[in-house]
Write a protein that binds this DNA or RNA. Structure first.
Lengths: 237, 237, 237, 237
DNA sequence: AATGAATGAGGTTTCATTCAT
DNA sequence: AATGAATGAAACCTCATTCAT
């Protein structure tokens, strides 16, 4: 009753970069290892169609939430018949996972494009990463809000996968950045805790921004950035 | 299809304390103004039965989530027949609201009992409020996690009410505390933003603690407290 | 994928009478131990409604077979709504099992009523049992044909139960009768084999009678009876 | 809803050998007159591909039954694409018919190879035919079980054809053998009845052998053979 | 006040068959 | 001749809510 899913995912040994220099490129590689089984043969068609599904699903999901959205509605919004859709996915949960992965890709690509990895100074790098992330999340508020509140409805296998992705991309990314700061008194434990808290704070506007919707985006971005930096004991620029 | 609820709540003008001294007592009063319509006559019986429902519902909700839990299961866990339960509530959403209110009551009572209101020094008062709240939330992790992730599935009327309660108790409480600090450069906007962020950070462990479950509760409490205090630009004790 | 059923049956230690005198009464008791879980409370209502379902289901099953019959059709033929029907069963397979049990009950009651158990002479008793059984089966040709060809479509749990019932009523009954004959050279093995073959032959008309439908029932009954008796090496009356 | 099949078979007047000497050769000829329409041109390719389909289908059918097996699975097991498969058949029912015909061919070839037709003495010929048939059926238990229990799910046209084949090969074969015995009191009616019963008994192990699986094959073969011979009033060797 | 049976719309998923390439 | 993507009609089952007792 708990789980309605029967098929399992193929994750061919998702590699976890060891060492102190986890960067965005590696995060991308990690993502590539998680895929949804499909009856279709051509990988390219799969990618295209799954994107179509993601787009359609988001339209409805953001409005009604995961549970109140029926597969029929998703198919309609994606411009596919239900039969066709099930050619490219195997369950409703699969769609949620696709959206989840889409969110991660969006974030990674955004950061890659903003040249974070190239910044030398660890403190500046962290600040810019936060700022850039918060901006993105505010911009795609619906997506992040949806993913962060609905992922928990996934059934076992899918849930594990989602947590896995999170752990191996987001958390690892922040941990690396915090670790590079060399804050006195911060050992592995504190670093991980800080990384987790940073990742959490980033998503503030998407999850609880309702109450501060009258405040400008810029101000919120700056506030969260400064709050995070100061929270770590650093001095805001 | 979006909303299955037809009955509306009686909220007889929920009063919002004006002035600079919003305290926990007033939060309690606010809460008292939100109630669920029931076909039953005796108010006391209603209270008792509704508590029974809350207890039963939580047992199942925490395990299976709101949507996967059927009314029948809640009735069973509450030791009532379905017919009886519908005497004291009018819809499944009502139950979610009851749990929500229960969470708020728990928090207010907890803070009341810890003598926060009596602390003179604003900085100490804030620090203790945070610490006490984070402790409570970790202790009742399931409840807070459930409420914070499931509330958004409520249909219109119920959702408004939930947000209203939040606004008039939690947020107002933190705003008052932050406002009393007199941080330079903090006008109403910044104060509200800070209050929102604090309230959000408190709930970190319940929402994202999964990733730091190997770290001791005490350490997490202290970390969140210090992080919050520093984030506001204050000096941790 | 193989089994769609999740709920299991309560069989509270189905007793298997030991010793040489298994009779129809005991077969009845065995049957009573197999039941279908139902959300309903009053056992009497359950019995009545389940009978209603059996009657309705048979109307459609005999015409279209198990797989081609939808539950909607069964509900319709039973004069119930689908919701109501699912109050008294939990799956389509349950209905098939109910029909199976119904067939066994019919047979046991028929034999009970024909005074088989009272016949002293083992040979006469066997002959009469065969004759009586074959008659019944021809009379309820559709029912027996249906049960004997469709039972194998059941999923695991249900299939086991059906085989169990068969083993503990039908087969045991014939084994007892054959055993009482004291045929020279017949040890346990031969007795069980003979019992199985007899049970199989009885159902000839229902399964393959199509090809001899122009021949009178009486003649078929006599032919099968004599064939069976002679087959065992006995002398027909 | 009852029948999903639209295409009909070409049976160019299947000839029924008249006279008292129906033999296996003629049975083969009868079979040859039943075929499945195909869009393909070369008859030989059709035969080869259809055999491929039969082999693949059986793998899955025996495991999951007709209804639970999807066309896709059959195509996979046959090493064909779905499109290709539909070049050589026109419906799922066609496949069931192919398997049915395959079973008959197997049986006829088996008997042909065992020299039954050459045996002079009618009693010996019958005994050997039974023995040989039962052996074969036990050996190909899955096939015979499948065909005998699933054929009835066929839609009208196909069902008629299957019964036709049965009537014109199996039943006619046994009728001829029994007729040749010249049993006193056996007129056409009794002969046909006996033939039908013999054909039915042969298949005992495949249909109900589950209950005697601990007993050796040899013993079962001998038991069925002797039982049949005695049942006809003859003396076992 | 209380019971639990009844309703019926709606959910997700499967699959035989057709069709464009 | 061959591929496999696309269709769309059911299929089985669940459940919030109402109602007769």
């Amino acid at each position: 009753m708990t789980s309605r899913c029967r098929k399992v995912y193929r994750k061919s040994s998702p590699p976890l970069a060891r060492g102190s220099t986890f960067r965005l490129k590696e995060a991308k590689q990690v993502l590539a290892h998680y895929s949804i089984p499909s009856a279709a043969k051509k990988p390219q068609a799969v990618l295209k169609k799954q994107n179509q599904i993601i787009q359609g699903a988001c339209q409805v999901f953001f409005r009604k939430g995961f549970n109140r959205t029926s597969i029929r509605e998703i198919a309609l919004a994606s411009g596919m018949s239900m039969g066709q859709m099930y050619h490219y996915i195997s369950s409703k949960d699969d769609i949620l996972f696709l959206v989840h992965r889409h969110m991660h890709e969006l974030w990674i690509n955004h950061l890659s494009g903003s040249g974070i990895d190239a910044i030398e100074d660890p403190e500046t790098r962290l600040r810019e990463a936060i700022k850039s992330t918060v901006k993105l999340i505010i911009q795609h508020r619906n997506l992040f809000q949806f993913v962060y509140t609905e992922s928990k409805h996934l059934a076992e296998t899918h849930l594990e996968m989602v947590l896995d992705v999170d752990e191996k991309t987001t958390l690892r990314f922040w941990r690396e950045l915090v670790g590079a700061l060399g804050i006195p008194g911060f050992r592995e434990k504190e670093i991980r805790l800080a990384a987790s808290v940073l990742a959490f704070l980033n998503v503030f506007e998407a999850l609880r921004g309702r109450t501060v919707r009258d405040i400008g985006r810029e101000e919120i971005v700056d506030f969260i950035t400064d709050f995070s930096i100061r929270g770590l004991g650093l001095r805001p620029s």
